[in-house]
Structure formats: C-alpha cells, structure tokens
C-alpha cells in the first residue's frame, strides 16, 4: 500500500514538471516570461513552506533570505568579474549564513514572539540595504551589466537574455528544489520536523534535539529562499530593495497558505494563482494589494489548510 502511494506521488510530481516543460511551447511571450518569474517565486515559497508548513514556524521576515541571495549574487555580478555561476553560489552562501545567524537568535523564541522577531529582523535587513544606498542604490536598485548576462559552464554557453534558456533554467531549479524537499520531507528528518510542528515537548522527550532540528529546517528554508533570490536577480538582471520589504515576506506566507501549507506542491500552485490574480487586478486598480488583504483574511477564516491541504483532507489522503 505504501509503495503504491509512492508511485502515485512520484508520478504526480514528474507529471507537474513535465506539464511545466511542455507548456513553454504553447505559451505566448507574456505568459512565458510570467511563468519564469512565477517558478522562481514558487521556489522562494517552497523554501518558506519548509519552515512554516512542515516545522510549524511562522516567519514574517523571509524576504531577508530572498534578498540575501538577490544581493549576494547581484552585487557580486555587478562589482566583480567572478562570473555568473560563482555569483549564484555566493548568493546562496549569503542566504545560508544569514539564516544560520538569524536562526540561532530567533529560535530562542516561539510562537508570536518568533513571528515578531523575524519581522523585525526582516525590517533591519531592509533598512540596512537602504542605508548602504551608495552600494546598493536602494529602491532604485542595480541593473546587471552585459558581462553578467551570459556565462559558460561545463562547455555550455548560457545566454540569460534568451527567454527559452531562462525558462528552462528556472524549471531546472524548480525541479531540483522539488527533489530536495521531497527527499527531506518524506524521510526520517521530515517525520521529526512534522512531529515538532505537532508537539515540540513530546518530540524533545523522544530524544530529539528539537532546537537543532528547527535550526536545520530554518537554514534549509533560508537557503532555498536565497537560491530563488539569487536566480531572480541574475536572470532578470535587477536587484532592488523592494524585494526585501515586509510585503515580500508576506507574499511567501500568502502563496503557501493559498496552495496549502505542509503540502509539497502547495506553494507552487499558490504562487501561480496569486501571481495571476494580482496581475489581473493591477490592470484595473493601483490598490491591487487589497486582493492580498482579502485573500489572507478569507484563507485564515475559511480555508486555513489551503487548496491542496483541503483536497488532501477531503479526497486524496496520499497527497504529500
């Protein structure tokens, strides 16, 4: 019975990735570009979900990890000639280091205090970016130079101005993230993280060092979010302080809540839906954030488990 489920689950994920691969041949330019962005945002949200959905820790400052990747990679590419691949790696390392430091401090708190502490740290990160505006250009941001728009890796020449290459690069990163999260969540570590979410004291009394497990989850979460940021900055040739605002932290929460916290594909579904909802609304009004507000209230009131969480509860109990 378990193995039958495993096959179903693997088939579902491979199917989703295959569908994303195939739609690029039929999508019009605008949606092609939009979906590239959405896939990167989905990686960000999947990182967020690692912490919120699986470990039960609600962070309100995740934009700082996205921004750490964004600026780590973007500023390396802008100010040095280390090349795009190295800049990407440096971005990820920045995110991992930041999440380790933040985790060691913030995880001394729980519940509401953890939410406020992460929000405040996020705010500090944003203010720091604007304070060093001589280097970061603050809200105005930095545009990547032409030298950082293409690179050679393992004999392959990659052109980041090419939409098709960009799309498939984003898809590749999404597939990688999906694989990592899949392995972690469905293995022994995932079982312990979920146990911490359900009852931390009990998990401690089963002999698990819950602090270290939570720290590990936060670092993994922050690193994945930073990878999304690094890729976003390099692919779209722009880094700016808006990506570090609290609004970006809340978007990760919203995408995850909408799709279903604690489901592997939830953040992806939530990102796609919310992106298009906001995209369509902003054609009609500048107050498109109204949708964000209404969505948050409606979700938390009526669908706290999100779309996939509700589907799992009612119909498909095997959904991971």
């Amino acid at each position: 019975m378990r193995s039958e489920n495993t096959i179903r689950v693997i088939a579902l994920h491979v199917g989703v990735l295959a569908a994303l691969f195939l739609v690029q041949f039929v999508l019009p330019d605008y949606h092609h570009l939009a979906l590239t962005r959405v896939m990167l945002l989905a990686i960000y949200a999947m990182g967020y979900n690692m912490l919120f959905g699986y470990t039960g820790l609600l962070s309100l400052g995740h934009a700082m990890f996205f921004a750490a990747g964004l600026y780590g990679a973007g500023m390396t590419a802008y100010y040095t000639d280390l090349g795009v691949p190295l800049a990407f790696v440096i971005g990820i390392i920045c995110g991992a280091a930041l999440s380790l430091v933040i985790g060691v401090i913030a995880l001394r708190t729980t519940g509401v205090a953890f939410m406020i502490v992460t929000m405040m740290f996020g705010q500090v990160a944003y203010l720091t970016i604007t304070y060093f505006t001589d280097y970061t250009r603050g809200e105005e941001g930095l545009t990547m130079p032409t030298s950082a728009r293409s690179f050679d890796l393992l004999g392959l020449h990659v052109d980041l101005t090419n939409a098709v290459q960009r799309y498939n690069l984003a898809l590749g990163l999404l597939a990688l993230t999906l694989l990592v999260i899949f392995v972690v969540v469905r293995g022994p570590i995932g079982r312990v993280l979920i146990a911490i979410r359900e009852n931390e004291t009990r998990t401690l009394m089963l002999g698990f060092d819950t602090f270290r497990m939570k720290l590990g989850a936060l670092v993994l979460s922050g690193t994945i979010s930073a990878m999304a940021g690094a890729a976003y900055g390099l692919m779209f040739a722009y880094v700016g302080a808006t990506f570090a605002t609290i609004q970006y932290s809340i978007e990760a929460l919203l995408f995850t809540l909408l799709g279903g916290a604690g489901t592997i594909l939830g953040p992806l579904l939530g990102s796609i839906l919310m992106f298009y909802i906001i995209d369509i609304t902003s054609e009609y009004t500048q107050a498109y954030l109204l949708v964000t507000g209404v969505a948050l209230v409606v979700l938390v009131l009526f669908f706290p488990k999100g779309i996939l969480g509700t589907i799992r509860e009612r119909w498909l109990s095997w959904l991971p």
Partner: peptide, 18 residues
C-alpha cells in the same frame, strides 16, 4: 495567536488599500 496575526496583516492591507 498565529491566525490572528495573519488575519490582522490582511486587515492592514484591506484598510490601507480601501
């Protein structure tokens, strides 16, 4: 506590954008 924070974030946007 956690749900109410999420809800008041939503209220923040609703009031501000309205």
């Amino acid at each position: 506590p956690e749900s109410t924070i999420v809800a008041t974030i939503g209220m923040l946007y609703i009031i501000q954008q309205t």
